[in-house]
Amino acid sequence: MRHGKYPFIIGFLAVPVALYATFVVAAYVQTFQLSLTSWSGFGVIKYVGFDNFVKLWEDELFWKSLRHNAYLLFLLPILTIALALVFAFLLNVGGGTKGGVTRGVWGSKFYRVIFFFPQLMALAIVAVIFGRVFSSDKSGMLNGLFPDSWSPWLFLADERWALTCILAVLVWQAVGFYVVLFSAGMGSIGEEIYEAAALDGATRVTLFFRITLPLLWNTIQTGWVYLGIAAFDAFALVNIMTVDRGGPDGATSVLAMMIYRNTFEYSQVGYASALGVVLFFLTLTFAALTLRVTRRDAV
């Protein structure tokens, strides 16, 4: 048996590792390399040292975009996870215990399907639809609901609220998935634990905070990292929904949008790569920090 082990493992690993090395590792190495050049995307590559990073430091839009990413990074996971936990709890445990079986609120099987719908739609379609929802005049869905005498809310055309609109769509889209994820997590929590707690007279709130939350911690932690990474992105929504793509006046610009524009529109691939390098380290730092800060001893 022993002599066949390595060929067996290598046989399984070769293809994925090769793919990963070509399309991820090599791409990253190249990004790092290009970030030190002034390459336009066409023709000859010229090295310029750390010029791109100096330029970046002085670029107001970069700091603005970074703040927007930070805003999403802070609020997207919190809101999504909080909402998803509440919904998942209601779907699974919220109905109380009957005949020794905990159950969700009435109609929870139906809701579970509904919650997952947004996840099934392509992000581009979601963005187009919400573009209509948030339209800045009376033809918009939300503005259409308001009485005629109101002057229309500008939503995406209002610098103060545009990013919040994007956040709302991100949360709307993500919640369904995490409801399902947390539901699965809750399903694996032993029935007898709830039963015992219920016998001790625990209320639903106590059940949630003392039993569900601690036992779900690993799942939540993973969700947090995923959502954080999604918050570093937000490209599709910004690209499709917002005024002037990232506007009005940079009010919704995010790093991914800047990378895209510099690469494909401004022919500044070198600069875009520098942005990519920054994003790479930010993502990495975030993931490491999150996993460290939220680390808990197994319950």
Binding site: A27, I229, Y260, G276
Partner: peptide, 16 residues
């Protein structure tokens, strides 16, 4: 996105 959220740059490899 699945790989690590630096979308546009990942694509560059094709053009270098």
């Amino acid at each position: 996105v699945g790989l690590a959220a630096t979308p546009a740059v990942g694509m560059l490899s094709a053009c270098v």
